[in-house]
Structures are given as C-alpha cells and as structure tokens.
Computed example of a mutant assay.
Amino acid sequence: MYEKVVAYGLSKKEAIEDYPFGPEPLVLKVGGKVFALLRQANGICQVSLKCDPVIAENLREQNEAIKPGYHLNKKHWNTVTVDSTFPLEDLYSMIDHSYDLVFKSLTKAQREAITMRIRATDL
C-alpha cells in the first residue's frame, strides 16, 4: 500500500521526494513546497495532505480514518490512516487535491516554468 501511494504522489508533475526531518516521514514536494508527508509503521500507512478547510472538515466527518493533520496546521491538513480497507481511489483524489492546492500556491513564474518543462518533455 505504502509503495503505491508513494508512486502515485511521485507521478504528479515534477513531484520530488525529500527527507528534511530524517528518515521519516517521506515528504513529497512540488516547487519546493510540501503536498504530502508519508510514514509507515506495522503495515499501516499514514499520509498527511493539504486540504481546503471546508473539505477537510467534511472528510473528517465522513471517515474516521481521516483526522486533523498530525503535527500540522489542523485547519489545512488531514492525516489519513490507510489500511487495506481504505479505498485507494479516494486517497488518490485527496493527493490530487493537495497537489493542486500547493501547485496553485506557487508563484506564476514557478508554475509556468514547471508547465514549460513538462511540455518540453512531451515533445
């Protein structure tokens, strides 16, 4: 499960992995900004993702596996405990949302540079 989640996060445009806090958590970034933090213990994966505050609250109310961000701003981050019962498609949608929020927060120049590099590799 953990490997699938990491692979999906790294499939996002110019996503990179980093370890700024030591061996854990694995941090996924775009444009130098964090969009996901992942850790695994005892076969259980935890993923912290940025989220629109209103959506974050709704997700927490709908699923007990989703809690306020662990050691993060509780308003803007959720931590998801992912086991074999948590639908990967739901998690992938949450990763997409987090990535999009962070990508949109980059400067116009950063967004354009990323888009240009992606177009260049598509040729």
Rank of each mutant, 00 (worst) to 15 (best):
M1W: 06
K4S: 13
V5G: 00
V6Q: 07
G9F: 01
G9S: 12
S11L: 10
K12C: 09
K13D: 12
E14P: 08
A15Y: 03
I16P: 04
F21A: 04
F21H: 11
F21T: 03
F21R: 03
P23E: 14
P25L: 15
V27G: 00
V27E: 03
L28A: 02
G31E: 06
G31A: 14
K33I: 08
A36W: 03
L37N: 02
L38W: 03
R39Y: 09
R39T: 15
Q40E: 15
N42I: 13
N42K: 15
N42M: 14
I44Q: 11
C45E: 10
C45T: 13
Q46C: 08
Q46H: 11
L49G: 00
L49A: 04
L49S: 00
D52E: 14
P53K: 12
A56P: 01
N58T: 15
R60P: 04
E61I: 15
Q62A: 15
P68I: 05
P68Y: 08
G69P: 06
L72N: 01
N73I: 10
N73P: 08
N73H: 12
K74D: 06
H76N: 08
H76R: 09
W77Q: 00
V80L: 09
V80C: 05
T81L: 06
T81Y: 02
V82C: 09
V82Q: 04
V82K: 00
D83W: 03
D83G: 08
S84T: 11
P87D: 14
L88R: 12
L88A: 11
L88N: 10
Y92Q: 10
M94I: 07
M94C: 07
D96E: 11
H97V: 06
S98T: 02
S98P: 01
D100Y: 01
F103V: 06
S105Q: 05
T107S: 13
Q110I: 08
R111V: 07
R111D: 06
E112V: 05
A113H: 03
T115N: 07
T121I: 04
D122H: 13
L123P: 02
